[in-house]
Amino acid sequence: MSVLDIFGRLTQQADLMDAMMKKLGVEEEMWKMPDHAGVLRRAANRCLLCDRPDSCEHWLANESHPDEAPGFCRNHDLFERVLENMAHEKQPVT
Score class of each variant (00 low, 15 high):
90 K>T: 02
25 G>S: 07
13 Q>Y: 12
36 H>C: 05
67 D>H: 06
79 F>W: 01
79 F>E: 00
37 A>F: 10
48 L>K: 07
37 A>P: 02
79 F>I: 00
88 H>V: 12
89 E>N: 04
87 A>E: 00
92 P>C: 03
85 N>L: 14
28 E>F: 12
42 R>H: 07
86 M>D: 00
20 M>G: 08
26 V>F: 01
87 A>L: 09
80 E>T: 06
21 M>T: 07
39 V>A: 05
50 C>G: 04
31 W>M: 10
63 E>Y: 07
64 S>P: 07
76 H>N: 02
50 C>F: 04
36 H>R: 05
1 M>N: 08
11 T>L: 14
62 N>P: 12
66 P>L: 00
73 C>L: 01
38 G>A: 02
56 C>N: 11
2 S>T: 14
39 V>F: 07
29 E>P: 03
1 M>H: 08
34 P>F: 13
32 K>N: 02
41 R>E: 10
33 M>K: 11
28 E>Y: 11
34 P>N: 11
63 E>K: 06
39 V>P: 01
83 L>H: 01
91 Q>W: 06
79 F>G: 00
38 G>S: 03
19 A>E: 01
50 C>S: 08
44 A>C: 12
73 C>W: 00
25 G>E: 01
16 L>N: 13
2 S>K: 13
31 W>S: 14
52 R>L: 10
82 V>F: 12
61 A>L: 10
30 M>P: 03
34 P>D: 05
59 W>T: 14
36 H>G: 05
50 C>I: 06
57 E>Y: 13
81 R>W: 06
63 E>I: 04
59 W>A: 08
4 L>K: 15
90 K>A: 10
3 V>H: 13
46 R>G: 11
9 R>Q: 00
66 P>R: 00
29 E>F: 10
34 P>T: 11
12 Q>R: 03
42 R>F: 14
81 R>S: 08
78 L>C: 04
55 S>K: 04
13 Q>C: 12
3 V>W: 15
69 A>M: 01
64 S>W: 06
81 R>A: 06
5 D>R: 12
31 W>F: 15
52 R>P: 02
60 L>D: 02
58 H>F: 12
94 T>S: 04
21 M>P: 06
65 H>I: 12
10 L>V: 13
9 R>T: 00
48 L>Y: 09
65 H>E: 06
28 E>S: 15
3 V>F: 15
28 E>H: 15
90 K>I: 02
38 G>I: 13
71 G>P: 05
45 N>V: 15
42 R>G: 07
56 C>Q: 07
29 E>C: 09
66 P>G: 00
61 A>W: 04
31 W>R: 10
68 E>Y: 03
39 V>W: 08
52 R>Y: 09
31 W>D: 15
31 W>C: 14
75 N>A: 04
14 A>V: 05
40 L>Y: 05
85 N>K: 11
25 G>V: 04
32 K>G: 05
67 D>F: 08
1 M>G: 15
90 K>S: 01
36 H>M: 10
81 R>M: 05
10 L>G: 03
51 D>M: 09
51 D>S: 06
50 C>W: 07
57 E>N: 11
29 E>V: 14
